[in-house]
Design a protein around this nucleic acid. Sequence first.
DNA 1: AAGACGAAAGTGGTTGA
DNA 2: TCAACAACTTTCGTCTT
Length: 310
Amino acid sequence: MEEEIESRRRVKECPECKSTNVIRDYEWAEVVCRDCGFVIADRLTDSGPEWRAFDDAQKARRARVGAPMTFSIHDKGLSTMIDMQDKDTFGKNLTPGQRAQVYRLRKWQRRVRVSDATERNLAFALSELSKMASAINLPKNILETASVIYRRAVKRHLIRGRSIQGVTAAALYMACRQCGVARTLDEISTISHINKKEIGRSYRFIVKELECFIPPLTPNYYVSRFANQLGLAGKVENVALRILQTASSIRLTSGRGPTGIAAAATYIASVLASEHRTQREIAEIANVTEVTIRNRYKELISRLMIHVYL
DNA sequence: AAGACGAAAGTGGTTGA
DNA sequence: TCAACAACTTTCGTCTT
């Protein structure tokens, strides 16, 4: 049993360099080769247990925990269901009197589970969240975070006057930011079919009301994503990150859109490392225009005194 | 012919009175 | 509520390889 799990988790070898040094990166939902940086699979679902066992005693204690508790089902997945067969534990049919009683129990069980409006609201919102999260392959921890944020918003009565879907989208966006996973408002907007403006409004409102600290999203997060999508080597990514580091140290990054800067840094790095990508290619995946890349790129080149020999 | 460059006008969002 | 403003986009013409 233990063997089986182990063999399933330790994927295969890297098809690029045949190394077996392969890791699963749940934050980015990818399986990555540690030696050459090749992304083996990028639609990873976290199917593992939600806990880790550090010794045998813990393993024994935790091995039979039943269904994991989750925040993404409205009752945290823990409530009791009464099944629909009118049989007792021995499989015998119930007497008519007992059947009537079970029927009444079921009815109340249902009513208690999803009782009032807020519960229904929560159930709907959380299923919406799951749909969105799986649409862009976000790992489970993001979904859980988003669910927690949504619950808190409900508790503080922040939903009133706003659409449920708008707030769920905002919660998902917040969760991404909190977990340091780079997803733009645009991406959330496309998968949720809600316009950016509304999500942004809800987002700002919730952040203010819940008084959460959301770390600002730095261009660094985007660089690795762009590098991956462009099929650039890890070396290029490192160069881009170094560029960003010096850029931020002389305050070149503040006030600018992080995607634009990340795109420009990636562009420069690709040129420096002679793995040239066109501005158009990068603009495409970064969702900025070539003009923006050019502007950032000019600033970076002149201020950092990088000499690019084209 | 494709890519890079830059000027000019337009757009959507923030800020401060 | 409105105007000023900065960042960014769109469009288009020119230059370089």
